[in-house]
């Protein structure tokens, strides 16, 4: 096996493991971070596939833009929950008074 072939095989295994890690993570933020890392792994894989164009895109989208959007959505959702809780607590406090 050539050097390139070995490299590709190693990265393929890493990508497979990465996919599993992303899909199995249960905490949202951790999952997004894993997704970002998975995107980078894919980018490296594409680079060894002689696809620099796709590498750039995958880096830009898969490991930066998408995780950013995802995190923003997650913060939005978590904050909304916190805000609801805070409001509920507030109302409960007022109710007691």
């Amino acid at each position: 096996m050539t050097l390139m072939g070995t490299l590709q095989a190693v990265i393929l295994v890493l990508v497979a493991a990465g996919a599993l890690a992303v899909a199995r993570a249960r905490d949202r933020v951790r999952q997004v971070l894993l997704l970002s890392g998975y995107g980078m792994l894919l980018a490296v894989l594409f680079f060894t596939f002689q696809a620099p164009d796709v590498t750039l895109s995958e880096l830009a989208v898969g490991s930066v833009a998408l995780p950013l959007i995802l995190l923003l959505a997650i913060f939005k959702v978590d904050k909304a929950r916190d805000a609801d809780k805070a409001r509920d607590a507030d109302q409960a406090r007022r109710g007691r008074r």
Partner: peptide, 22 residues
Amino acid sequence: DLIHQIICLVVVQSSTYVLLLG
């Protein structure tokens, strides 16, 4: 969890990149 599902959908789609380039 919906967001988790959406991320998994991204993983599903990433399989097509690997296949295409492969």
